[in-house]
C-alpha cells in the first residue's frame, strides 16, 4: 500500500535531523564500501598480476589459446637490470631495494618524476638463442600514467609488439591504445636511427609510405587521442633512451647477451 501523501513536517526536516541522517547514511555507506574493498583486494591483486603476465606474453606474441598464462609465463626469464650501468644485477630484489632517484625536469619527458635504480626485464628464448627482450615501460598520457610492455627482437631494435595493461585514458579515444588493430601497427617498427637515438614516435594522422625516410620509426596516430599518442611516444623514447634501458640494449647489440 502506498504511503499517504507527504505533509511537510518541521520536526523531521529540521537542521539537527538533517545532519544526523546525513552523517549516519554516509558512515554506513563508507563502512560498506571500505569493507568490500578490503575483503576483495587479494582477489583483485591476483587478477591484476595475471593481467600483467598476460600482457607481457601478448606483447611478445607468445600467447597460445591451448595453454594457460601461468604455463606460458614459465617460458620467459625475468632478469633484474641496473639501469645506470645497463648490467645484469643478479641477487637484487627490486621489490625490496626500491631505490629511486629524481629525474631532472629536462630529462623527464615521460613525466614520471622518479626513476627506479633497478628494473625487471623478461627474456624469451628460441632453442637457447635469445629471441625477444620484453621491457616494462610507463609514462603519463592525457589523464593517467600508462603502464605497458614493449617486446623487441634479439637485435634490440625491431619491435615485436606493444601492450598496455593499466591506464585511465578516455574510453573510446585514448583507451584505443588497447585496440588490437592499432597495436598490430607496431610490429616491425624500428626504435633507433643510425645515430643510435630513439626515433620511434606516434605521429598525428597516417604515416606516409612514399618518400618518407622515417617510415620505419613512425606509427599512425589515433583520431581524437593526440595527447595520449604523444604520451606513448614520450614514454617509449624515455625508457628506450639512455635514461631507461638504453645502456642495457646497447650492450646487447654490441656484445650479445654474454657481455651483460
Amino acid at each position: 500500500m502506498p504511503d499517504s501523501p507527504r505533509i511537510h513536517d518541521p520536526k523531521k526536516d529540521g537542521p539537527v535531523r538533517t545532519m544526523v541522517v546525513a552523517l549516519v547514511v554516509s558512515f554506513c555507506c563508507a563502512v560498506l564500501v571500505a569493507g568490500t574493498a578490503i575483503l576483495l583486494r587479494p582477489q583483485y591483486e591476483l587478477n591484476q598480476e595475471h593481467n600483467r603476465q598476460k600482457n607481457i606474453l601478448a606483447a611478445a606474441g607468445l600467447l597460445r589459446a591451448e595453454k594457460t598464462v601461468q604455463e606460458l609465463f614459465q617460458q620467459v626469464e625475468p632478469q633484474v637490470i641496473d639501469l645506470s650501468s645497463g648490467k645484469h644485477a643478479p641477487g637484487v630484489d627490486p621489490a625490496t631495494s626500491a631505490a629511486k632517484s629524481p629525474i631532472s625536469r629536462d630529462n623527464d619527458i615521460a613525466f614520471i618524476k622518479e626513476r627506479p635504480r633497478y628494473a625487471v626485464v623478461y627474456l624469451a628464448y628460441d632453442d637457447d638463442h635469445l629471441s625477444e627482450i620484453i621491457l616494462p615501460v610507463y609514462g603519463y598520457g592525457l589523464w593517467s600514467t600508462m603502464y605497458g610492455y614493449v617486446a623487441l627482437e634479439a637485435d634490440a631494435n625491431t619491435i615485436v609488439g606493444l601492450r598496455f595493461y593499466e591506464h585511465g585514458e578516455t574510453p573510446g579515444l585514448g583507451a584505443e591504445i588497447e585496440n588490437q588493430q592499432w597495436l598490430d601497427l607496431w610490429r616491425g617498427k624500428r626504435v633507433y636511427g643510425d645515430s643510435g637515438e630513439a626515433l620511434i614516435e606516434v605521429i598525428k594522422g597516417q604515416v606516409a609510405v612514399e618518400g618518407n625516410s622515417q617510415v620505419d620509426h613512425q606509427v599512425d596516430g589515433i583520431t581524437g587521442a593526440t595527447l595520449t599518442g604523444d604520451g606513448v611516444t614520450n614514454l617509449l623514447r624515455y625508457w628506450l633512451g639512455e635514461q631507461g634501458f638504453g645502456h642495457y640494449l646497447q650492450g646487447l647489440r654490441q656484445g650479445g647477451e654474454d657481455s651483460i
Binding site: R6, G14, R17, V21, A22, V33, T36
Partner: peptide, 19 residues
C-alpha cells in the same frame, strides 16, 4: 528529510555501485 532526499538516495546508490 525532504530537503536532502536526493543526496541520500545518490549516496546509497553510488555506494552499491562501487560494491
Amino acid at each position: 528529510p525532504d530537503n536532502i532526499r536526493i543526496v541520500v538516495q545518490m549516496t546509497i546508490i553510488a555506494s552499491l555501485v562501487i560494491v
